[in-house]
Design a protein around this nucleic acid. Structure first.
Lengths: 337, 337
DNA sequence: ATGAAAGCGCTAACAA
DNA sequence: TTGTTAGCGCTTTCAT
């Protein structure tokens, strides 16, 4: 760490004690610091460019001004939306420490537990965990204000902001059914995250209610890079299905590419639906029919919940609905050769 | 912060002093701690679940295990690539604290200075700053190991990893010239970042060498959201130009949408080129002709440079070339009505 | 209204 | 080889 100006330096210049500087800095000046001394301190702080040492403050008070945000993968724009929501709700007195699996941790699968552990050792005052995996949440110290985003459930002592996938999934099923589809396939992410498993489960229920069945075993991928997805999809996709549902938007881009490479046009010869619906969904060609998840909103919600929690408020659980946005990537069931 | 087990607790149980615990924890046991005491400490640490308090360590040693990464905007996937590169080069003993402008800071323009200040008060051992603005770098304390990414220049005491835009820009000019374009327009981002200004400057030089001129005043935007970009482009684009160059890929998506909305097909009636070339460039329709910037590689480079700098190595400056990737969004000059 | 002093949990220099 | 002591920079309680 770099040698910096300390409260003692300021005190020396202002002709008072470090304690007075502390009081003044923290605005606890009422009935404690006279105006003259206050003014001298102000001048000295200004002149010396004094900035309190957070580490010392933290050690002294036992309170950190750091909020930690743990998320599984840098590659999902999804987390940009959440982050944007969170930062809209917290003020500049907080430090936001983002923690994600390191590259080698990700390569050997997951790494989110390790990421959480690293986040914890920074001694945060509050914690936000996005799209956690099953085995992670038991690491969260009870007593640490925590909000979990995008999971079915969380420990008692954690606030929770989650999606209700039921309406979105029901709409997908109704939409595909109306278009005559009866045999579909599912492409998912190979991670044990609540949110992913639930999307699949709600979808399964909804499709069953419409007598639509999965005609291929699910394709589970561990990577969302479009080119890698495209390769795997090419080997998997057969003429057994007339529609494919992707558990996440990121997978759909590769699926579209693969489908076209195989000579099956979208939506002419294959319909494609996804979950997530971020900005690119409406930009690609064909634009993507997708279950919209209000992600910026859930980020704001999480930010609010954490702020209130850290301030001593109660644990809250909020659920926001999803809905289907129909675009160009779905159409009537193809007549198969 | 949660009440935790301290070294004193461990010492009490092991029948030694806190100092011995510290030595043992830090592996400085040679000739200092006997095997018997060491074993008792090990047992006590184990039984009590002792984890050293980072804050106290940091205050005591003056050394933090935190690396700070400052970047201007969550919305650029660009930074995901960099982050991916950085995390490939650092090990788990480091905490990586990401800092970006808060939402309200961004709204009133920039906020990157504020973000840097927030990063600094965490007392990082090293610093990476991506795509800085002109007035930021003077805030960096000399003596703090720092690497600047994606800027023309940096203070003496900072390492620098930058792009050479000259080859990319030259290729753009040659490509457009060969296709017969003579009048073009430029869409940029309204931020005083070196990288953006330099892209524009190198492009200007290169086009001039090919007698291609800017037939419209540059359109400078403060937002990269495709829908907002599209609106502004619609008002700006005229038949004076047959090709448009975007300073960043993110702008091109909106530009394509706007162009098509105005009834000018791409590339039939308008050619489009961008800088940056991230994954979506090859996925959208038409795929984007773009100046490729090796961003993951520059992230790794930065990670290496910082690691070596923190370990006492020298300041380094590295420059990586850019190159044009020709795809579908450019074609022969349109015959204008 | 002000100053002195203790202590947060750890490390490092010192003495024993 | 071990134990003691003095800080790191700040906050806070207690005298003055």
């Amino acid at each position: 760490m770099i040698k910096r100006v300390t409260a003692a330096d300021v005190a020396a210049r202002a002709g008072c004690t470090p304690a007075a500087v502390s009081l003044w800095i923290n605005g606890k000046t009422a009935g404690r610091i006279s105006d003259q001394v206050g003014e001298r301190i102000r001048e000295a702080v200004e002149a010396l460019g004094y900035v309190p040492n957070r580490t010392a403050q933290q050690l002294s008070t036992g309170q950190s001004r750091q909020l930690a945000f743990v998320f599984p993968d840098v590659w999902y724009t999804f987390f940009s939306y959440i982050l944007d929501g969170i930062t809209a709700e917290i003020d500049e007195s907080w430090d936001l420490a983002l923690t994600m699996p390191l590259r080698h941790e990700r390569e050997q699968g997951g790494g989110t537990r390790a990421a959480l552990q690293r986040a914890l050792r920074g001694g945060p005052a509050g914690l936000i965990i996005a799209s956690p995996e099953r085995e992670m949440l038991d690491l969260v110290p009870p007593g640490l204000p925590t909000v979990v985003i995008d999971a079915d459930s969380a420990p008692e002592h954690c606030s929770l902001a989650r999606y209700d996938f039921e309406p979105g999934a029901a709409a997908v099923a109704a939409h595909l059914s109306a278009a005559g589809h009866e045999r579909v396939g599912y492409i998912g992410l190979d991670r044990r995250a609540d949110t992913l498993l639930t999307r699949r489960a709600r979808l399964g229920d909804a499709l069953e209610a419409h007598d639509i069945r999965f005609a291929l075993p699910d394709l589970l991928l561990d990577n969302i890079r479009a080119d890698m997805v495209a390769d795997r999809v090419s080997d998997w996709l057969t003429s057994d299905v007339t529609a494919v549902i992707c558990g996440d938007e990121s997978l759909a881009y590769g699926a579209i590419a693969a489908s076209q490479r195989l000579g099956r046009s979208v939506p002419g010869e294959l319909s494609l639906v996804s979950f997530n619906d971020l900005a690119p969904a409406s930009l690609i060609e064909p634009s993507l029919t997708s279950v919209h998840m209000p992600t910026y909103e859930i980020g704001r919600l999480a930010g609010q919940m954490l702020a209130s929690r850290v301030a001593g408020g109660d644990v809250r659980v909020e659920t926001v609905p999803t809905e289907l946005v129909v675009r160009e990537s779905t159409g009537p069931r193809a007549v198969l050769r």
